[in-house]
């Protein structure tokens, strides 16, 4: 195991985060605060509680997920896309390092950054609403799994993308709509029966539901199913990255 290489990639990626602190940390925190102000306080004050949880508190797990998913994807995708774009990826490809070590470095750093953002958002939310976490261990488990799984997914996008447009297209056109439609701001019980069934096809619903359960013991779907879906997604992404490195897809000719 090339531990020094993992440490070097991780350190370089975290250094990049520090160099762009405002953009990396401040911007997701500010946008989440705006959601709290608009949906939690302004509109939320007129909405009844959802399954016994005040609306402002109800949306906290969903908002955290929204930030975690988009940040994990953008951090990890940019982390590997940028070296490809500037040509510096040659160094990683010519180094005595396996695909798993590359992932530990890049995805580890992206997931760490997302985790930090998630924690900051959680702390920020506690200023706006009355938060309680019923199952802290499960909350942390979901948090970690989400950060890792979606950083892996971002890494795949970064490997696949060969221009900036492609880099943006998946998060913008697929992930953001799926998060919004996955129960970030509502419980699917509020939907007509047909849409409830359709929503069950949305993989992100399971993630948000499980995460919300760890806070308030309120869930749209079974928590074991949520956990299994997240784990399956993570393993799926790992297999795809392994395949990409093995075949040199978009990396080696």
């Amino acid at each position: 195991m090339n531990v020094e290489a993992i440490k070097a990639i991780y350190a370089a990626e975290m250094r990049r985060t520090r160099n762009t602190l405002m953009q990396s940390i401040a911007s997701p925190v500010i946008s989440t605060c705006l959601y709290f102000v608009v949906f939690g306080s302004a509109i939320g004050s007129r909405i009844e509680s959802v399954e016994g949880v005040s609306y402002g508190a109800f949306i906290v797990p969903g908002l955290m997920m929204l930030s975690l998913l988009t940040q994990s994807i953008s951090n990890a995708s940019f982390g590997i896309f940028f070296p490809k774009f500037t040509g510096t990826v040659y160094e990683v490809l010519s180094a005595p390092i396996s695909f798993f070590e590359v992932i530990l470095g890049y995805v580890g750093a992206a997931a760490t950054k997302s985790l930090i953002i998630g924690i900051i958002i959680l702390i920020t939310a506690s200023f706006f609403v009355d938060l309680r976490v019923a199952h802290p261990v499960w909350m942390v488990t979901f948090l970690l799994m989400t950060c890792v799984a979606f950083s892996l997914f971002g890494f795949i996008i970064g490997l696949w993308a060969d221009n900036f447009e492609k880099l943006q297209i998946v998060p913008l056109l697929i992930i953001t709509p799926l998060v919004f439609l996955g129960g970030t701001f509502y419980s699917i019980d509020m939907l007509p029966p047909l849409w409830q069934k359709i929503s069950l096809l949305n993989p992100l619903l399971y993630l948000i539901s499980g995460f919300r359960w760890s806070f308030y013991e309120v869930a749209d779907v079974n928590v074991v199913l949520s956990l299994s879906m997240t784990a399956a997604f993570m393993v799926g992404c790992l297999i795809v990255v392994w395949y990409m490195f093995r075949t040199g897809y978009k990396l080696k000719q």
């Binding site: 290489a5 070097a8 370089a12 940028f82 070296p83 500037t86 180094a95 390092i97």
Partner: peptide, 18 residues
């Protein structure tokens, strides 16, 4: 890499090679 300083980018290379 555009934003790295010289000693860091050289240290990164050294680390990559174990």
């Amino acid at each position: 890499g555009a934003f790295e300083v010289v000693e860091n980018t050289v240290a990164l290379s050294r680390g990559l090679f174990g």
